[in-house]
Design a binder for these strands. Sequence first.
DNA 1: GGAACGATCTGC
DNA 2: CAGATCGTTCCC
Length: 177
Amino acid sequence: MRHVSRQLLSGGAPDVAPLLLNKLLVHGECIGRIMEVEAYREDDPASHTFRGRTKRNAVMFGPAGHLYVYFTYGMHFCANVVTGADGSGAAVLLRAVEPVAGHEIMSHRRQGRPQLADGPAKLCQAFGIDARHNGADLLAGAGPGLFDDGTPPPDRPRISPRIGITKAVDVPWRWRV
DNA sequence: GGAACGATCTGC
DNA sequence: CAGATCGTTCCC
């Protein structure tokens, strides 16, 4: 199994997002197949980068292949794969993965709840992803990684507007298997 | 300095 | 459907 290529992530977020479906998120013994994603980019009112670079969103403006982790609602972390050219302020939000391995530890981290990773904050909790992983390189080294096991993205992913936002609510940048 | 608000989840 | 809970952002 090999890392996803940096090249694959170098395009615009709405182009890259559907290509991440069926890729594998790996962290420690936990493995999950990506089932749902959303795209965000700099000219997009719903994006954290819309109002320019800040300390919080700096990673999104960095090179593709790094992890942008943000804290929200006072208690949740969400994880994004940074895409596009260095300086472009775009990323793909990981909204859901299907657990492939590490069910036991995920279930423990999720306090026995049956839904392990079917939401952006739930998957971070299940995989033990938090602020320490903000900026991590997903394509090299230890820590969380993004892998390709040869499973292609779906030919006809479900496409719909993004969830939980209040701006650009009709932009259809949500893809799911 | 202060207030408003989340790319959410859970339990009622 | 409302409450939890706090860092970030924006406005005064």
